[in-house]
Design a protein around this nucleic acid. Structure first.
Lengths: 344, 344
DNA sequence: GTGAAAGCGCTAACAC
DNA sequence: GTGTTAGCGCTTTCAC
């Protein structure tokens, strides 16, 4: 048997379809006895309002699209990042009876613009969440903004007037991590910076510098090396840092992958972590807790951030989303086993 | 300005809406000059067919739902698993102009049934993909099957007549891995079995036994210990195996997390891998390539599997999906650094 | 409180 | 080849 429609329910309950609609949508103006009669019919026919029909009539899609960078071969690290965002977005959507469409998009592809406008044009989502690093790519942001579809950028790196965003306190938390290392007695603390394409990541270096200053440590340019967010680049960075005449006693990498690379090189060289070298990362990715020794890192509240983004788009949360402006959800230090007191 | 509708395009092009519809859907019976006229109007108005309206009229949702186990806190390992499935499903969907809805569901929750029927009832997806371990939970499978929505199970563990599934050759590939270890000279090869809830995983133990037999090695019951898929259980297994009077020279774990646990314990005990102990896993998860030493493992073609599932649901692939029955996509050995010749 | 009628933007069936 | 007419299954006026 085909699925029951609103007409079937109305017929069975002996009321008009409008009344069924009222009951299905929990409107008030229905007599209790009528309501119960309709509810019985709904239960009996196992009726569920048709998503497409309802969307067409309401002129809303009840769909949120989450757009993020497609890493291509899907290496491990980004998987955790993406999953956590999805998790938060889904939680928020489900609570509002919305559905989430995911759309990995090739960062830097020439036709992001077309691709996104196509998607938005067809699907007419009630809102779009654009994750970093796409959120700091004007091409992508503008493509969506132009369609006038409500948009929230995740970790855009910098605030843009009139645009909604959710971000974390990259800079402050990196300062905090640095101060933490200082508090362990470290004086030569190196920093492996990340891919500058990802603007939020590039806020981490200033944070490190802030932390040094706050800890009363003089900054040494030789202790800052550039990475590109990959494990490999972390290895390279470690090789060069540990070959220094006066090598650092602590290395703080702008993400966990690079930190894992640092760790590998350190182990390969026979260094003990954290006795000989402290290592810290950023992201609390999959790797962080499973490498040996478990990595001290910084946890971004990705799920919460995505949740806030949905809330900003379709409302209904415990507090109002911003009409515009940036919501900051703070990150936190995760102290594990890769950091310890500086060697004498 | 509000988005253009088919009427706007028709008016601008000076044709009927039906003609616009024909052009938009790439039907043939349209004169070339008319077609071009319409295409110009479409481009000028930036027209995109409304998803909801089209779905309602066609009585198809153009939506596929991917249902998988929600690991709750989203630890690392499952993230890669989920992402790879999504990746394959998305690729197949995009190519067919379908959208993918993701639906993590609490494995074992009392109301999976209600939850899934609700979802399917409202959204009316054109197909559902049910991933393991939900795919070997009759509760979940039946809930969807009853709605008569086309369904494909991923790695159901066992074939069920009349049901479509996509799986990999768990048993054969485990035999192959075992033979590979034998070929390295190992004679005492241990196995850490996985969570029996996940039926496909439980096919791995028989595969190991096959491999031993094929390699001419006598099976020793003390060399098989039960794990539950977690890193911790891998550590426990390693502790007990390495405490044996005659410890194994190789440990094959039914998944990478457990293998990573084995690795940690081995390193903690000062064993060199692979000189003193070879370790192999299964999944080629995030961890596998990033732990030290990189893990020899088995790669399931999860993306391909999900892709085949979509293909089976909505057709259109290079070859036909099965009306019913199971498609097998073979896994492959990934030889890295954690396995080597047996010690003398 | 309840219902009749008119859409939402598209496709399908059938003319012409 | 092209257009006309009905829906698809809901919600939304606006009466009653």
């Amino acid at each position: 048997m085909p699925r029951a429609t609103i007409d079937d329910v109305a017929a069975l309950a002996g009321v008009s379809i409008k009344t069924v609609s009222r009951v299905a949508n929990g409107e008030r103006n229905v007599r209790q006895s009528t309501r119960e009669k309709v509810q019985r019919a709904i239960a009996q026919l196992n009726y569920r309002p048709n998503f497409a029909a309802r969307n067409l009539a309401r002129q809303r899609s009840h769909l949120v699209v989450l757009v993020y960078d497609d890493p291509g071969q899907y290496e491990a690290p980004s998987a955790g990042y993406v999953i956590r965002m999805q998790h938060g977005a889904l939680r928020a959507c489900r609570q509002r009876r919305y559905e989430l469409l995911i759309h990995p998009s090739l960062y830097g592809a020439a036709d992001v613009r077309r691709e996104l406008q196509d998607l938005v044009g067809r699907v007419r989502p009630d809102g779009v969440i654009l994750a970093a690093p796409l959120s700091n790519m004007p091409h992508a942001v503008d493509a969506i903004a132009e369609t006038r579809t409500p948009l929230v950028c995740l970790s855009p790196g910098a605030v843009t007037p009139g645009r909604r965003a959710v971000a974390t306190n990259d800079r402050e938390i990196c300062a905090e991590m640095t101060r933490y290392l200082v508090s362990l007695g470290h004086r030569r603390i190196a920093f492996v910076s990340g891919n500058p394409d990802h603007k939020a990541v590039s806020n981490r270096l200033p944070g490190y510098l802030d932390g040094l200053r706050q800890g009363g440590i003089k900054h040494s340019a030789t202790l800052v090396v550039a990475g590109n967010n990959s494990v490999k680049s972390g290895e390279d960075a470690a090789e060069s840092l540990l070959a220094l005449a006066r090598p650092p006693t602590a290395i703080f990498a702008a993400n966990d992958d690079m930190a894992a690379g640092v760790l590998r090189v350190a182990l390969r060289k026979g260094l003990r972590v954290p006795q000989d070298l402290s290592v810290a990362g950023f992201d609390d990715s999959a790797l962080a807790s499973h490498v040996f020794p478990a990595l001290t890192t910084i946890r971004q509240p990705l799920a919460r951030m995505a949740e806030r983004a949905v809330q900003a788009l379709i409302g209904g949360g415990d507090d109002r989303g911003p009409g515009t402006g940036t919501v900051i959800v703070p990150s936190s230090l995760v102290i594990r086993d890769s950091t310890g007191p500086a060697p004498p």
